[in-house]
Amino acid sequence: MELVFALVIGALTASGVYLLLRARTFPVVVGLTLISYGVNLFLFSSGRLATGAQPVLGTADGYADPLPQALVLTAIVIGFAMTAFVVVLSLRSLADHDDDHVDGHQESDATHTAQKPEETGK
């Protein structure tokens, strides 16, 4: 189980980082989401992995550490809110610049937009 768990975290984080480095806002948002999944799983595993253990003392032979579960819950809530915000912000940026490039425009368009400063809004 440990190996599968570690591989899943690794795959999620690696794909997340790869997508985060893309130049379009949609892959960036998906990348951030994948990273936050990986981080949440990692945080969960910091209380050690256990099967059939409850986070309550005396109900089973072993018990699971309840604190990482609370931390993950907090992290999920915060991560979800932040992702929602970044989606809205990306849509706003797309509407403002007619382009979903993270810099508002591509490098090849730089000379094109520079000739029309009234369109770049700067």
């Binding site: 970044v86 912000l89 706003r92 610049h97 993270v102 810099d103 508002g104």
Partner: peptide
């Protein structure tokens, strides 16, 4: 419009 791109960078 000038604020949306720096804002996006900051948030990400």
């Amino acid at each position: 419009r000038a604020r949306s791109i720096p804002g996006l960078h900051y948030v990400v």
